[in-house]
Design a protein around this nucleic acid. Structure first.
Length: 568
RNA sequence: UGGGGCGUCGUCAAGUGGUAAGACACGGGAUUUUGGUUCCCGCAUGCGGAGGUUCGAAUCCUCCCGCCCCAGCCA
């Protein structure tokens, strides 16, 4: 028995793990496990890709195998280097490494060309002069068989000559394609003489102007897998119909044959995960860019403050199966909170400040209160938080007319200021014109320092605060779902997904006041603003003179839920 | 109406003939100087439906129903 057999299962069983275990048992690939993650560099990676990345790299890791990064760059009209760079940064950020195994389908253009020649020589491919419209016409329909192209029976010599001239740029785009000669009556449309090379007189981001013909996905992908010695070629469900073609090319060419396995792509509630739609959001300026914190892209999640660990946990927990499904975004948020709860240090910040003057507190006294950095991690120690006569509290932590079960501040009510004192509200000052509460007058109990009453009396609520003269001002961006409909892909009559954009997905609060220690806040470090949520410094817009924080995710708010329920 | 897939709790998802895991969500309770965290408890006599085989069926058979994908010289 070797190590692989005794190693504990890294995760719950799913059909692909089962297939690999079985293949290992029967020694199908000599004990190898070799996968690949094959993005097309035509957009940024999103959470759906993360599922695939975690699957492919994760499986390789789990079974002591390898996973290649391979760009499927066979269509230069859509692909750009910007995307190549972004993809690498994202995969690395997730914590995976391809070592020296970064490949491009374009690395294989010469070999691919030779394989096409081989197919022609075998009488299994031909150059077709039909126009795109005619090809569609000849293909038939779902229920009717297609008919053979009049060019289907050209001689091998003529095909070789024509294909060579295609490569040499002698023909216009759309005038000729190389097609596989399979079966125009096949019930699977993919087998009705699919195109394998087309003329595109465009510059390729890697091969420059060397080529003016480019291979199609179906031809390039399987051969690339074969060249790289891939064992399990994992892709999404829509390629299931392409598997016979994948197999056909490899069988005809008589080369090493990996197995293609399909799984259901990820769908997330309240979001869209199609490159086309995400690109549209970016191009039309509906969001600030691919890395807008509301985007489901890895770049967006990263900027928002998500951790790679949370995303990897999520990818594991959602499972892998073949049925279409929509995962509740709440599950992703759960994985996030679970991770952040362990690693984020606590800090106090007031988002919507309400000034409170503690009338019986000495005018110029400043006390340093002891605060615990992270109750989940004692190693993080303690810090000092300055306290003084005038502080800010959260507007929402005061109600002139407190509803039932409201534990916070109200006229005549006593609450605890976290790590500080018990205070009682004695007076409410309002704006003469608007009637809005602008300031509170309170008294404190000097005996309750640190938040403990020597007489043992209890106080219902504990609220956070920031000393006015020590406060660090900041802008805080609160995010909500980009779409207000649970399935924005379900476009009703006459509407598009854009009609479901949530107008309140971004709320910017300008006058926030942070605890003094936050003046040293760094990009990339998660903070929990106590009682509010997890926040991080915005990596793009924040400046020392103008602090900008993003709310990564709010804390669970049981009170909000109760209050909402009693209102309904 | 051709072909390929898929239907197990509100949402994901195990289960592969021996009598429905787990997670999220939801509801209840305990602890708590975050209405956070943590901890208990509850949550499918039922596996798309109807028949059948069997001592026994989510698992096998038959028929039916529903959903997704495919007619790019996209991937």
């Amino acid at each position: 028995m070797n190590e692989k057999d005794t190693a504990p299962a890294a995760g719950p069983p799913h059909f692909i793990r089962n297939i690999i275990r079985e293949d290992l048992k029967t020694n199908k690939y000599g004990g190898r496990v070799h996968t690949r993650f094959p993005p097309e560099p035509n957009g940024y990676l999103h959470i759906g890709h993360a599922k695939s990345i975690c699957l492919n790299f994760g499986l390789a890791e789990e079974f002591g195998g390898l996973c290649n990064l391979r760009y499927d760059d066979t269509n230069p009209t859509k692909e750009e280097v910007e995307y190549v760079d972004a993809i690498e940064a994202d995969v690395r950020w997730l914590g995976f490494d391809w070592d020296d195994r970064k490949f491009y389908a374009s690395d294989y253009f010469d070999q691919l060309y030779q394989f096409a020649v081989q197919l022609i020589k075998k009488g299994k491919a031909y150059v077709c002069d039909l126009s795109p419209d005619d090809i569609r016409e000849y293909r038939g329909t779902l229920t009717q068989p297609g008919k053979n192209s009049p060019y289907r029976d050209r001689s091998v010599e003529e095909n070789l000559d024509l294909f060579e001239r295609m490569r040499a740029g002698k023909f216009a785009e759309g005038s000729r394609v190389l097609r596989a000669k399979i079966d125009m009556a096949a019930p699977n449309l993919n087998m009705r003489d699919p195109a394998i090379y087309r003329v595109k007189k465009v510059h390729h981001h890697r091969t420059g102007d060397k080529w003016c013909i480019y291979p199609m996905y179906d031809f390039a992908h399987g051969i690339s897998d074969s060249i790289e010695g891939i064992t399990h070629s994992i892709c999404t469900l829509e390629f299931e119909d392409h598997r016979p073609l994948y197999d056909w090319f490899l069988d005809q060419l008589e080369i090493y044959h990996p197995q293609q396995i399909e799984f259901a792509r990820l769908n997330l509630s309240y979001t869209v995960l199609s490159k086309r739609k995400l690109l549209q959001l970016v191009r039309e300026g509906r969001v600030s860019g691919w890395d807008d914190p509301r985007m489901p892209t890895l770049a967006g999640f990263r900027r928002r403050g998500y951790t790679p660990e949370a995303i990897r946990t999520f990818a594991e927990i959602i499972g892998v199966a073949k049925r279409d499904s929509v995962v509740d975004i709440a599950l992703l948020e759960h994985c996030l909170r679970e991770d952040l709860n362990k690693r984020a240090n606590r800090v106090m910040a007031v988002l919507r400040p309400l000034k409170v003057v503690i009338e019986n507190y000495p005018d110029d006294l400043v006390e340093e209160m002891d605060a615990i950095n992270n109750p989940e991690d004692p190693a993080q120690g303690k810090r000092k938080v300055p306290f003084s006569k005038t502080i800010y509290i959260e507007k929402d932590d005061f109600r002139e007319m407190p509803p039932r079960h409201y534990h916070r501040l109200a006229p005549g009510q006593e609450v605890r200021l976290r790590y500080a004192y018990f205070i009682t509200c004695t007076d409410v000052i309002k704006d003469k014109n608007s009637g809005e509460v602008v300031e509170l007058r309170c008294t404190y109990d000097p005996a309750s320092r640190g938040g403990w009453a020597p007489d043992g009396r209890k106080v219902k609520g504990t609220i956070h605060w920031v000393s006015v003269k020590h406060a660090v001002p900041a802008t805080v961006r609160l995010y909500d779902q980009l779409f207000s409909k649970d399935d924005p892909n379900d476009e009703e009559e006459g509407k598009t997904f854009l009609d479901y954009l949530n107008p309140n997905s971004l709320q910017e609060l300008k006058n926030c006041q942070l605890e003094a220690s936050l003046s040293k806040a760094k990009v990339g470090v998660p903070y929990q603003f106590e009682r509010l949520g997890y926040f991080c410094v915005d990596s793009i817009d924040s400046k020392p003179s103008d602090f900008i924080f993003n709310r990564t995710v709010a804390l669970r708010d049981t009170w909000a839920k109760i209050e909402k329920k009693t209102q309904d």
